[in-house]
Design a binder for these strands. Structure first.
Lengths: 245, 245
DNA sequence: ATTGACAAGTGTACGACGTACACCTAACGT
DNA sequence: ACGTTAGGTGTACGTCGTACACTTGTCAAT
């Protein structure tokens, strides 16, 4: 009976269970609060037990990235390169919006896991299948950069408003004073910040991140299309002069 | 005499001296090896002494970013928005190539310091001065993203070759086997990786990062120019359909 | 049934890290 | 001469990743 009871309440750990728990925990409490100790606790186990299933925290993070990548849809078939790329990037973005730690972790990873390489390979494949030259594909992949994962460096995180200043909220007069400060010191920043604030279709705060993302993505894709159509082969006017200094 | 001697060999610390030392140390040993303890040691001082000049490590990093930003050239006057933006971005990039920790630290910072805000403000100013609408400027800034700082997410860090595998170097047969593995599993990736390897103008390894950066930058700038010329006002065909799901 | 190998989980411990807090000390305005 | 105070010290706490030696629980071969 003790055996039975213990067996029911303690399913043995496994790499997959550890990774799943890590993903869930990071989703819930954020990546900066994900420690081996905390994760072990969540699994009802002593910290060192995890090391029987993952070699190190680095490997844990790699595994989490793999889990994330596996949630990205495969390329849509017979949709044309542009649509295929577009849909895939947006699928990746959806995965990243669910797992908000993804951006940071993806950025930090330097060792590419097979899953990551596989994604990149198949991504490249979309361009080649679309008739892009190997060279143009190469450049185009660089131009996409992290956008291929569905994210970009967020420039206007929460800034430019000055609402949440840590745990303490400033008194209203201080806020007003700060706004005046800002207006005086950063007039241009203020212009674009306030302009984007009172758009109609905006739900939450400053600006519609999804719109901005798709705007830039489409701008790039259109550029790619133009280069491709004119049969790109490193024409002089497209080649930037490599600045020596 | 003791006073004199001590005075000469111990110039009192100051915020600027701390920041300068931090920058120098990070340049030398890398950002991940920059700890308050190590920095204090470098300055011949006990760790806690630093906290008399810097509130926390976070603030130290902010200060380092400020130092970095101050190395970026101011906008060139009367050169047209496109050239002004281009030159400024490349100037930022040069600063980041000197301080290789810049990318990571800039990415991690969520609190924008006055220097950072100032840079952004003046950056925005270049577009507005070029006749861009506030709206278009806003989108364009998002599209640039981290490229405004002169960097992009590096996708092909060292990968795709499999040369340096940590401290241990693999025996040649193992490397060959791995290459064959790669070729079978990631044919597309291999194609673009090898193609970029035997370009003539390439100096170091896989591909010319500077070229790739400028390629993508110019692609974006050309896109901006086109939108600007046709008097962008959110025309329907440019507006991406916001995917609900 | 006994053994003994092996995988899974435990416990203790170490050396980093950031930093709170109390203390000392030397320079300076009064 | 004296109190204030800015700059530097020392000790200590809690957190982190993880090395290493250990118990335990399970199953195959005897």
């Amino acid at each position: 009976m003790t055996q039975q009871a213990e067996r029911t309440r303690r399913i043995p750990l496994s790499r997959d269970r550890v990774l799943a728990a890590a993903v869930a925990l990071a989703d819930e409490v954020g990546i900066e609060a994900l420690s081996m100790r905390r994760l072990a606790q969540e699994l009802g186990v002593v910290p060192m037990a995890l090391y029987k299933h993952v070699a190190s925290k680095e490997e844990l993070l790699d595994g989490m990235v793999d889990a994330l990548v596996s949630e990205i849809d495969p390329p849509v078939r017979d949709a044309g390169w542009k649509n295929a790329v577009r849909l895939r990037v947006l699928s990746a973005r959806r995965a990243l919006l669910v797992h908000r730690w993804g951006r940071q972790v993806l950025e930090s990873r330097t060792n590419k896991t097979p899953a990551v390489l596989g994604y990149m390979d198949s991504f490249i494949g979309m361009f080649l299948a679309g008739g892009f030259s190997v060279d143009l594909t190469h450049h185009v992949m660089h131009a996409l950069g992290s956008r291929m994962w569905g994210f970009t460096q967020e420039l206007f995180d929460d800034s430019a408003g000055g609402s949440a200043e840590g745990p303490v909220t400033l008194p209203p007069e201080a806020q007003a004073a700060m706004s005046r400060e800002m207006a005086a010191r950063y007039p241009n920043l203020l212009k674009v910040a306030t302009a984007s604030a009172h758009k109609d279709s905006v739900v939450g705060q400053g600006c519609d991140d999804q719109f901005e993302f798709e705007f830039a993505l489409d701008l790039l894709l259109d550029g790619f299309e133009r280069l491709h159509r004119q049969g790109w082969t490193s024409t002089p006017e497209e080649t930037p002069t490599p600045t020596a200094s």
